[in-house]
Structure formats: C-alpha cells, structure tokens
C-alpha cells in the first residue's frame, strides 16, 4: 500500500533524498533502497519521479486509517 515496491534499484539514493517524509532508506548490505516506513508515505510520487530507472511502484491506497473531515 502507498509506496508498494522497488524493483531494479541501482542504489543511487535519489528517492531517499527526495522523499519528504523519510519513508525510504538505503539497505546497508544490499546497497538498495528499501521501504522502511510506508505508514508515513503521503503518496506524492516524488521518489518515483526522481528515480532514474523508474524502479518504484506506488498504489493510491494508504496503509493506515485515513482521517478526513466528513465521510
């Protein structure tokens, strides 16, 4: 949900730097981007747009309850 998966990552860290809410981090062993805090993803797609190899997949659904003003 929200940010879903990373496939074909080249470890350039562009997405990590570009994510405003610190959702993605570099895995120190594999040297690849890893989704660590998906619950804080604001589904803004900046990471995907900054990724040079289009490795990131994002879904419009949020992984935690969505609180709005009326329903």
């Amino acid at each position: 949900m929200s940010i879903v998966s990373i496939n074909g990552c080249i470890g350039c860290e562009e997405c990590i730097k570009s994510c405003p809410t610190d959702v993605i981090r570099l895995n120190r062993d594999t040297k690849k981007a890893e989704i660590l805090y998906p619950e804080d993803c604001q589904i803004c797609h900046l990471c995907r747009m900054y990724c040079p190899v289009d490795a990131i997949t994002i879904s419009p659904e949020k992984s935690i309850p969505v609180i709005v003003s009326w329903g």
């Binding site: 604001q42 797609h45 747009m49 419009p60 949020k62 969505v66 709005v68």
Partner: peptide
C-alpha cells in the same frame, strides 16, 4: 480531496505533479 483513496495526493491532483 477525492473520496476514493482520499490520502493519495498525487492521484487527487490528476497529473499536475508531473
């Protein structure tokens, strides 16, 4: 926001972010 997937900022704004 859009009622469907209210949290999806990107989708809510069409393709404007792009």
């Amino acid at each position: 926001g859009k009622a469907k997937n209210a949290a999806a900022c990107y989708d809510g704004w069409g393709d404007m972010f792009e």
